[in-house]
Simulated scan of single mutants.
Amino acid sequence: MKKFKNNITGIEYFIVHACVETICFYLLRLHYPLLLAGTIAFTYDFFAFLPQGIIGKFIESHKKLPYETIGNLLMLGAIFLVASPVHALHISGYVVLGIGNAIMHECGAIATVTESRGKIFQSALFVSGGGVGIVIGQTMGIAQAPWQWLIIPAVLSEVCALAARKSVRKGTYPTFDVVEKKFSPWTILLVAFLVTAVRSYLGYAIPISWNKELWQTILLFGIMGLGKALGGYFVDRIGAWKTAVFSTLAAIPFLIFGDKIMVVSVIGVFFFSMTMSITFAMCLSILKSSPGLAFGVTTAALFIGLVPAFFVRFGLLTNAILIVILSIACCVLLSKTLKK
């Protein structure tokens, strides 16, 4: 019971994140496939990922505004815009959806760091909720569930976010210290950015030809979420350096040899996902008074990493080579900059 109470903010924002992604991924499937599907996804990703650092800094500096309600109202408005029979409103709906998503992510990052007591698990728990929402949203989309059902996660998101509203506004944050002091702050932030961008890109390069059924997709995103949450748990227990080196190297053989073997592949995905919380902790170790900006660094890197996936596709062998080379490069960078 004590552990539950200590992680209550992470649990609340796990639910918020799941609700937000349920809405987003249902709406992203609503007009798919179309010739504009790529444009829709790129537009949404741009507004959902890139502005988060700016939004987070604004939230930290102006605490009186009801950001949770603003974010959820934008999500609710996006539902009606994207579901509208007026085609001209759809793209604007995805812009609104992305901005609402960004606000809710920043509220979650700030709230969970505030209540973290210098541990990264609550933030990792919050982020892992996205995998649950992706599965629910995609499942609803495939089943062609009525779009009106999205009002339920919108309301639930508001209830849980309001329950944690004080955590967003405290303005005092615990200290994180996972990086080597001999490197400049800019070097640490650059490494965190690069590693996050590479992880984002490799997420699209992982060969998963076995993923053909809905239940397999559910398993895949469930394992991703579990890896993200347990990555934060292990960072707190055994340290960022050990978690980073082990998970990055352990993932390689499972990822490149699991294309047609589901069990092998999901083990690799699990290890691969564990590094998510590490780069956020690195940014928090530098941007100590601004968790919103620290989280924004990682989300901007996520966007930069996924941009090539919109324009370039490689074969299985090339992807396998990229996974090996880039994973080893990330491992070296993390092993040098993280505190042992």
Rank of each mutant, 00 (worst) to 15 (best):
F221R: 07
A229D: 05
A240E: 01
S209D: 15
R237I: 03
N211E: 14
S209F: 13
L220K: 09
G227I: 00
D236P: 03
R237D: 04
I238L: 03
G231S: 06
I238E: 01
Y233W: 08
T217Q: 13
A240V: 04
D236S: 02
L226M: 14
W215H: 14
L220M: 14
K228D: 03
G239V: 01
D236Q: 01
I218C: 11
G239S: 00
R237Y: 06
E213F: 14
Q216I: 10
I223V: 15
Q216F: 10
A229S: 10
I223T: 09
K228T: 00
G222H: 07
K228E: 04
E213P: 09
G232L: 03
I223A: 07
W210M: 08
K228M: 07
G227A: 06
W210H: 08
F234C: 01
Y233D: 03
Y233M: 05
L220V: 10
G231R: 02
S209N: 14
W210I: 10
T217V: 15
L214V: 15
A229P: 05
G239A: 00
N211Q: 13
G222P: 08
R237Q: 07
A229L: 06
Q216N: 11
A240F: 00
A240H: 03
G231N: 06
K228F: 06
E213C: 13
G222S: 08
R237M: 04
T217D: 12
I218Y: 09
N211S: 11
S209I: 15
I218K: 07
E213W: 12
L219N: 11
A240G: 03
I238H: 02
L214C: 12
L219D: 12
W215G: 12
I223H: 09
N211A: 15
L214I: 15
G231A: 01
Y233N: 03
A240K: 04
M224W: 09
I223R: 01
R237W: 02
I238D: 01
K212M: 14
I218P: 05
L220A: 11
M224C: 10
G225S: 12
M224G: 05
L214T: 14
S209L: 13
L226K: 09
K228L: 03
T217M: 14
G225F: 06
